[in-house]
């Protein structure tokens, strides 16, 4: 089966600093791939290179057999690649529902039809379904800026799924979220993965979260791939234990 995402020999340098050094891996349809590694190992830089937010110094990114290196983030999103950010990136002055509508509207019709069509681009029912799926019904009309940190994280994740993406890249979704909310988030991600066959790539420091959610894990260290394997393989890998997990 053709991989959803192929990352081929990506390098990224900032002056004399080599943040990413020849990283290659692929993401299979319907899998949840985790990317772990110590701080500064190049995880977020790699994400930004894949998503067109940073041009890689060299290397290629392929999406379902189509070369997408250098495409703008908006173009990649319209091809079905969605993401969340490490830091909160919701639109504080819009309500929860409006944030979700915004996340899906650019996938509906042409720019002109969006101007002339209904104000919600016909997305209110979809947004309400997503709100219900993430159990945020009581917050639907609240401004996103007024939500708690954990609720905003949940909204951020929900926004990534509004357009029915082929691939979702989640950058530290568990960061700063308490245990109850984390359980809820994990349960929702698993449900989307199982019910819709959605494919995820997850960067995360929370080992329990990664090991219980992901089917395979890529370990980065100093900008290079240290190991790729199932959570069990990674736990048992001596190089990974030495470099990251510890004893």
């Amino acid at each position: 089966m053709k991989p959803v995402l192929e990352v081929r020999d990506i390098h990224k340098s900032f002056g004399g600093i080599h943040a990413v050094r020849g990283v290659s891996f692929d993401v299979r349809p319907g899998e949840i791939l985790g990317i772990i590694g110590p701080n500064g190992c190049g995880k977020s830089t790699l994400f930004n290179c894949i998503l067109g937010q940073l041009p890689p110094s060299s290397g290629e990114v392929w999406l379902e057999g189509e070369r997408v290196t250098g495409l703008r983030p908006s173009q990649l999103n319209r091809l079905g690649v969605s993401r969340t950010f490490q830091l909160l990136q919701v639109f504080p002055k819009l309500s929860v529902r409006e944030n979700l509508i915004l996340a899906g509207q650019e996938h509906r019709g042409s720019m002109l039809s969006r101007l002339l069509g209904p104000g919600d681009a016909g997305l209110t029912p979809d947004a309400d379904k997503m709100i219900a799926f993430f159990k945020m019904q009581h917050l639907a009309d609240e401004r996103a800026g007024g939500l708690s940190f954990g609720q905003q994280k949940l909204l951020d994740a929900a926004m990534a799924f509004m357009a029915g993406p082929r691939l979702v890249l989640l950058d530290e979704p568990a960061g700063g979220v308490n245990l109850t909310m984390l359980g809820n988030l994990k349960e929702r991600l698993k449900a989307i993965n199982e019910e819709q066959g959605a494919t995820f790539v997850v960067i995360e420091h929370n080992m329990d979260f990664v090991m219980s959610l992901c089917s395979r894990v890529v370990v980065l260290a100093e900008g290079k791939v240290l190991a790729i394997g199932t959570p069990a393989d990674i736990r048992a890998n001596q190089a990974v234990i030495d470099a990251y997990l510890g004893h």
Partner: peptide
Amino acid sequence: RAFTALRENPLRAQSLGI
């Protein structure tokens, strides 16, 4: 809504296909 997104967070707006 896209204008508001552009004002509040262009980076996130781009990632939503805007």
